[in-house]
Write a protein that binds this DNA or RNA. Sequence first.
DNA 1: TCCATGCTTCAACTATTGATGAAATGTTGA
DNA 2: TCAACATTTCATCAATAGTTGAAGCATGGA
Lengths: 109, 109
Amino acid sequence: MEQSRVLKSLSAMAHDTRLEIVRLLVPRGDDGLCAGDIAQTLGVSASGLSFHLSQLEQAGLLTSRKESRHVIYAADRAALGGVISYLLNDCCAGAAEISGCIAPRAQKV
Amino acid sequence: MEQSRVLKSLSAMAHDTRLEIVRLLVPRGDDGLCAGDIAQTLGVSASGLSFHLSQLEQAGLLTSRKESRHVIYAADRAALGGVISYLLNDCCAGAAEISGCIAPRAQKV
DNA sequence: TCCATGCTTCAACTATTGATGAAATGTTGA
DNA sequence: TCAACATTTCATCAATAGTTGAAGCATGGA
């Protein structure tokens, strides 16, 4: 992943509401969640949410699809993995102290 | 690491010059580099650099120490690891597709 | 067709961020 | 002490980001 794309992703995630959106969507996988449900869950206005969703989508972290009158958003896990990978491997290449930090708890594999 | 701290770190890294600073400092470890050398390497003005360094330091991603008339900055690897760990484990908990993305190349251990 | 729903877009405004260059601070060496 | 150096701070300005509420646009059901 190119650095400019990573920068966009970092900007996108560097906001309270938007990081919450990502946290909400990741575990739902491709099923995602429609905009209205996200707004309700996070307690934000529809138009405000729409703004943040488009930031995330432009950064490539979310995908969207229409389903009847709903718009379903889902996290793009590969993109998220790409950002994390960049931070770990390109940005912090070879720093064992950092790699050592990243697996503090058991993960589903 | 708490989310508010992660947000600060993401904001700090979400800037061209600042991400370059991190990339420059990580491989140097605790030796770090003085402000002047960083400015010269990256081709930015002293005052501009000072601004960005303080953003990174406030986010906890850098440490600084004075050595005679120089100020030496070094990456805080634990903090960086903490951010990456948060993204991987808290933000994207359990998403195997993401974990699977993060080890595309061999790392020094 | 008409209305309600779900979402986005727009306009206006405020707040934050970043760039620039000059001035200030502190340190070293002559 | 004085001058040069390393860095930060400050003031100013431009650009960007975020919030809010109203208006717009599809879609689906009565």
